[in-house]
Design a protein around this nucleic acid. Structure first.
Length: 289
DNA sequence: ACTATTTCCTGGATGC
DNA sequence: TGCATCCAGGAAATAG
């Protein structure tokens, strides 16, 4: 399940491979859920644009696009673009959220089109960028104004005072607060559990009852876990692979996630699993208070 | 203004 | 073996 480290890995991989390439044409599937913007607007926005940069924001992958001289002229010439007036601005963005099972990968055009493929971007280089998502929790949209933003603060950029302020007065369990993208963006179920274990805090602890010292440990834990996971290419749970189809290795470093009943790596007590806000939450009942 | 719960989706695992 | 049921979870929608 792609969270911040997986999305960062994918964004870096895509940036390395397709930055500077341009989008020649776009095919979109019939399933409506994965497409947040109308299909005609997506196609009109993407076709003929050059990929200037690719980056991660929270769990979103953002493609910064700009007009591509030759390709744009070709589009205007053959009148293929159905919505030319609405894409008058030279800058635009493609925004992709992978949800649970989404994948965004570069393909050889000869490669068989997999089941659950919802979008194919044919690139001028001849390669294809495909969006595949069996469960359709992922979303693809475009922004004309090139100013896409999302809620929450990047966990790798926040300082302690602002981190503490996010949780002030909140009665919700700290686990739920860590998953709330309006507060921090990018932390998901795996990294919330791993961070709380390292900080010695139980997932059900009410956010407002956590002390400043504990918040300091928690922020350090969140940042270390995310950085270590990025360094290992993310966690390959279920079917996650990066932009090159390669698996990550951070799942081998998980200390509590997915280890229900197994001995705690620190004290050998069996790891507990409870459900908080409908999500599996794993913790050591002895090490976490 | 918050918080908790439900809903969307498919494939893989489990149960009888 | 076959078929039904359950479970995974990000985030939006809904309810309280």
């Amino acid at each position: 399940m792609p969270e911040l480290p997986e999305v960062e890995t994918i964004a870096r991989g895509l940036a390395k491979r397709v930055t500077g390439d341009a989008i020649d044409s776009v095919w979109l599937g019939q399933k409506k859920e994965p497409l947040k913007s109308p299909a005609a607007e997506i196609a009109a926005t993407l076709e003929g644009r050059r990929i200037a940069s690719i980056r991660r924001m929270g769990k979103h992958i953002v493609f910064d696009l700009e007009a591509n001289g030759a390709a744009a002229a070709k589009r205007r010439g053959n009148g293929k673009s159905p919505n030319a007036a609405s894409v008058a601005s030279t800058r635009a963005q493609l925004i992709v959220h992978l949800g649970m099972t989404g994948r965004l990968q570069v393909y050889d055009p000869q490669a068989e089109v997999e089941k659950h493929t919802h979008a194919i971007l044919k690139l001028v280089s001849g390669r294809e960028l495909r969006f595949v998502d069996p469960r359709r929790f992922g979303r693809l949209s475009v922004a004309q104004t090139a100013n896409f933003d999302t809620t929450g603060i990047e966990p790798l950029e926040i300082d302690l005072d602002r981190f503490i302020a996010l949780f002030r007065g909140r009665k919700t369990p700290i686990k739920s607060a860590l998953l709330n993208q309006k507060l921090l963006r990018g932390v998901g179920n795996i990294y919330a559990d791993e961070s709380l274990f390292r900080a010695g805090i139980r997932p059900r602890r009410r956010a407002a009852t956590i002390t400043r010292d504990q918040f300091a440990k928690l922020l350090t834990a969140v940042q270390e876990v995310l950085k270590e996971a990025i360094a290992l290419g993310g966690s390959s749970i279920s079917d996650y692979v990066d932009a090159d189809g390669e698996e990550g290795f951070f799942q081998l470093q998980h200390r509590v996630y997915g280890r229900e009943g197994e001995p705690c790596v620190a004290c050998k007590t069996a790891v507990n699993r409870v459900v908080i806000a409908g999500r599996s939450s794993h913790y050591c009942p002895k090490c976490q208070k």
